[in-house]
Structure formats: C-alpha cells, structure tokens
C-alpha cells in the first residue's frame, strides 16, 4: 500500500499526539497507552496511518516496529469502525451456551459477507458497507456467569438470546436508540 511521502497532519492532531508523548514520556508501556488514547479519541475509533507515521517519528521508534505492534494486538483497528459496535464474547462459558450462533445471527442480520470480514469464522471483525455497524468478537469479557454475553455500544448484555440481540440491533438500525 503506497502512502504519500509528505503527509500533512492537521495541527490539532499533531498537538494531540505531541501532548500524549510528553505526558507519558519515560513510562513503561508508553506506546500501548498512547496508541490506546489515539484510538479512543478518534471519532471512528481507529488508528489512521498518518497518525502512526507521525507518532513513530516523534517517539523515535522505527515505523516497522509501530506497525508490528499495531497489527499484533486485537484491540487496535487500522480501519474505521462503524457507528455502532456489536461485540460477541467467544469465551468458554459463552461458547458452551451458544455464542457462535449469536455471532452468525448478527452477521446474517447485518448482511456481513466474507469479503467484508477479517479473521476466521469464529473470530472476526467486520464493518458493514454503509459504515453503520462493526461486528467483532472478543476472546473473553470475563462475565462468565452471565453467559452468553454480547456488548452493544459498550453496554454489556448478559444471558443474551438470539431474539434479544436481534431486537437490540434492529432498534439501532432504525435509529430508535
């Protein structure tokens, strides 16, 4: 993928990254913490490449290393996320209570096909073409007593049935939330 050599970052973005670098300088885990902050702050919750190039330059870290870190951890998104996120837990307790079917159900409901997804059938992250929904999985939320668990826009839903999840997603689709 070609990236133009002289990428102009907006001033406020440059200042934001600069402030993060000075705030966390010298601390352990600084790269992870800064990447998490950049992602959280971005309206589409992802890490644009130009931000990463700038960060690498500011911190004196080889861009290859930054890229290696960003692609290693599941949390980081290199693509813009949908307005709504549906996250299905694929932990053991949830799996034994049918979370795979929840995942299949929501994928079918949102019309997510293989090309729009990354990952294998059981673990994936995919965004609908209209940018409204991202469906992803998490290895385990740590809510095992509430199995099966789904998180819709940062709200944890426990003991979720296929119908309940379908209804929840429909509400969001129709914008009734």
């Amino acid at each position: 993928m070609m990236v133009a050599d002289s990428v102009e970052l907006k001033r406020e973005d440059r200042e934001f990254i600069d402030s993060l670098v000075s705030k966390h300088r010298g601390r352990p885990g600084v790269l992870l913490t800064i990447l998490e902050s950049i992602q959280e702050n971005h309206p589409q919750r992802y890490l644009p490449e130009d931000f990463l190039e700038y960060l690498a330059a500011r911190m004196g870290i080889p861009t290859a290393q930054v890229y290696s870190v960003v692609t290693f951890y599941s949390l980081f998104n290199l693509k813009p996320q949908g307005r709504h996120t549906v996250c299905i837990c694929r932990g053991t307790a949830c799996h034994t209570r049918g979370s795979l079917r929840l995942l299949e159900g929501v994928r079918l409901q949102l019309g997510l096909r293989q090309e729009e997804e990354e990952g294998s059938a059981d673990k994936m992250t995919g965004t609908t073409a209209d940018g409204n929904f991202t469906v992803r999985t998490v290895a385990c939320f740590g809510q095992c007593a509430l199995a099966p668990v789904a998180e819709v826009d940062h709200q944890i839903l426990g003991h979720v049935s296929e119908r309940a999840l379908e209804r929840e997603v429909e509400h969001l689709r129709k914008g009734r939330r």
Binding site: R27, P28, G29, V30, L31, L32, T33, L35, E36, I61, Q65, S68, V69, F72, Y73, S74, L75, F76, V138, A139
Partner: peptide, 28 residues
C-alpha cells in the same frame, strides 16, 4: 505504581511477552 492497559493478546500473560509489551514491542 502505574497502570498500563493490555491491548488484547492472551500471550501477554507469559512473563517475557508481557515485558516486551511494556517495552513497546509486539508481545512475543
């Protein structure tokens, strides 16, 4: 004491991987 959030890699539970992760590298 400082707090660092992991970023979704089970292998970082292994001690050398965790340490590498804190050093700003991939958690291998």
């Amino acid at each position: 004491l400082s707090l660092v959030e992991g970023a979704g890699a089970f292998v970082c539970g292994e001690e050398t991987a965790l340490i590498r992760s804190l050093e700003g590298r991939a958690g291998r």
